[in-house]
Amino acid sequence: MRCGVVTFPGSNCDHDVYHVLKHVLSQQVGFLWHDKADLKGAELVVLPGGFAYGDYLRGGALAALSPILEAVREHADNGGLVLGICNGFQVLLESGLLPGALRRNRSLRFECRDVFVQVERADTPWTEGYEEGRVLRLPIAHGEGNYVASEADLEVLEETGRVVFRYCDTDGNVDEESASNINGSQNAIAGIVSSEGNILGMMPHPERCSEAILGNDDGLALLATAVGAATEVLGLSR
């Protein structure tokens, strides 16, 4: 699959996603520069993590105004795949492609650690490589990951089953009040999809756990599923 990784000034996980897509999953990958509304034919567009424009204003706020977002929006409207990871999730929210916002972590500190999330939906273009209910261990690294949305938006998300990942403990128990809901997100939300399922925004970093040498490859199935390579890479039936 042709994949495009967007580089905003200050993106710093662009190389990481590129590496996994290209070297682990053997896909065609290119970087997409923020100031052109051109996806160069990419079928999967990734908005990577980092600190676009330093995030001095608010995570993703300036990046959401970049020319490339027009192209991303058009791509998404036509059903194209868009993945926003961490800062990329913030950009998706700021640009209105997904509902809600991210506040500072409950601890008021940057948190870099592994978290556990439950796969709530295994029927999206992102998660078919997992079994529903599976608990994944994924790395996070952010200061603003505390998901909030209006009551109305939350209700829609929950009723239409658009919450894909929820923070949980090692055994898969979800408790919004407990420490397992690492950043204090409403309903312990770690990742959501658009109504058509083609846009996924999530705080944890699947690209940081896609190689066995790093001690964890729980994230590989997500990226493999997205590029349609789950069968070859993971030996899974889709």
């Binding site: 996980c13 993590g49 940057f110 870099c112 970093h205 940081r208 040498i213 790093l214």
Partner: peptide
């Protein structure tokens, strides 16, 4: 925990061990 120690996806052994190891 307040330092990103996994970005760049090379960290085989992060902080807390005797020595850090990077791929």
């Amino acid at each position: 925990r307040q330092y990103d120690h996994t970005v760049r996806t090379n960290t085989v052994v992060g902080p807390g061990g005797d020595a850090a190891v990077l791929a």
